[in-house]
Amino acid sequence: MNAQRAVIFDLDGVLTDTAELHYRSWQDVTDALGVRFDRRINEQLRGLSREESLRIVLADRWEHTPEPRRVEIMREKNDRYLARVAEMTPNDVFEGIPALLAALRQAGAALAVASSSRNARVVLERLSLAGVFDAVVDGNDAPRSKPDPQVFTAAAAQLGVPTTRCVVVEDAEAGVQAARAAGMRVVGVGPAERVGAADLVVASPGMLRADALLGLVAVV
């Protein structure tokens, strides 16, 4: 690509609300296991891989759960999650996001999704957003999950845009840390106590503005 600037979006909590689908799927699994799980614990899973999420969910049980059983639990949770994803439609895209993407494209920015989820492409297809982005990097492509910067540096490489010309939009603390580790500017979506280390913080995805995002990586 010939773009001089890029905007790289996290998926869950930025483009759509899959957090609730994850919560309900984990709730199904933990109820069957007899493991305590609530929304506070669910918040800790933002931006983490499936395995790291399970480690938090199982807590003290992690070390006593054989690897084959861990794999089985993760598969059970993912199956329940995908069943819920199958019911998603383009109406589940956050309000304001389609207009934002159009404005960024009009401004000549390259666009990417970088998510720790291995199901990112499936979700984008359900939302009719798959063709909007120039690159999609997920947990299948970048196995080291956030706060490791791998998923973001891989997205920048696919776009052919230097990391210093990329701005990331994230809703998780681990994602903000990963973007900074990649040498990128970052906009946090959500409460300051979670994403306050970002260069710019907005309360919700609907408050994102193309000029504010691109202003963080202005071409001089």
Rank of each mutant, 00 (worst) to 15 (best):
Q4V: 14
R5N: 04
R5A: 11
A6I: 06
I8D: 03
D10C: 10
D12W: 01
G13P: 01
G13H: 04
L15R: 07
T16D: 11
D17I: 07
E20A: 13
Y23V: 04
R24K: 14
S25C: 05
Q27C: 13
Q27G: 07
T30Y: 02
D31R: 07
L33Q: 11
G34Q: 04
V35Y: 06
N42S: 15
E43A: 15
E43S: 14
E43H: 13
R46Y: 09
R50I: 02
R50N: 08
E52M: 04
S53H: 06
S53T: 04
L54Q: 01
L54K: 02
V57T: 11
L58T: 00
L58V: 02
R61A: 05
W62A: 09
E63Q: 14
P68Q: 12
P68T: 09
R69L: 12
Y81E: 01
L82F: 02
R84H: 04
V85K: 02
E87Q: 13
T89E: 12
P90F: 07
N91H: 14
D92Y: 07
D92I: 07
V93F: 05
E95R: 14
G96Q: 00
A102T: 12
Q106P: 00
A107P: 00
A107V: 04
A107Y: 05
G108A: 06
A109M: 04
V113H: 07
S115C: 11
S116T: 13
S116G: 13
S116W: 03
S117K: 07
L124E: 09
L127N: 05
S128Q: 15
S128K: 14
S128V: 11
L129R: 11
L129K: 13
G131A: 12
G131K: 09
V132G: 03
F133T: 08
V136P: 03
V137K: 11
D138H: 07
D138W: 03
G139A: 08
G139W: 10
N140L: 15
D141L: 12
D141K: 10
R144W: 04
R144E: 10
R144Y: 03
S145V: 06
K146A: 06
P147D: 12
P149E: 10
P149Y: 07
P149Q: 00
V151L: 08
F152V: 06
A154H: 06
A155C: 05
Q158D: 13
Q158T: 09
L159Y: 06
G160H: 07
G160F: 02
V161N: 09
T164F: 12
C166D: 08
V167L: 02
V168S: 07
V168E: 11
V169P: 01
E170R: 06
D171I: 10
D171G: 09
A174P: 01
G175C: 08
A181P: 01
M184P: 04
V187Y: 07
V187F: 05
V189C: 03
V189M: 02
A192T: 14
R194C: 08
G196A: 10
G196R: 06
G196D: 06
A197S: 14
A198N: 04
A198S: 11
D199Q: 01
D199L: 00
L200H: 12
V202D: 03
V202L: 04
S204G: 13
S204R: 15
G206K: 08
M207C: 14
A210G: 01
A210K: 04
D211T: 14
D211C: 07
D211W: 04
A212Q: 15
V219S: 15
V219D: 15
V219T: 15
V219L: 15
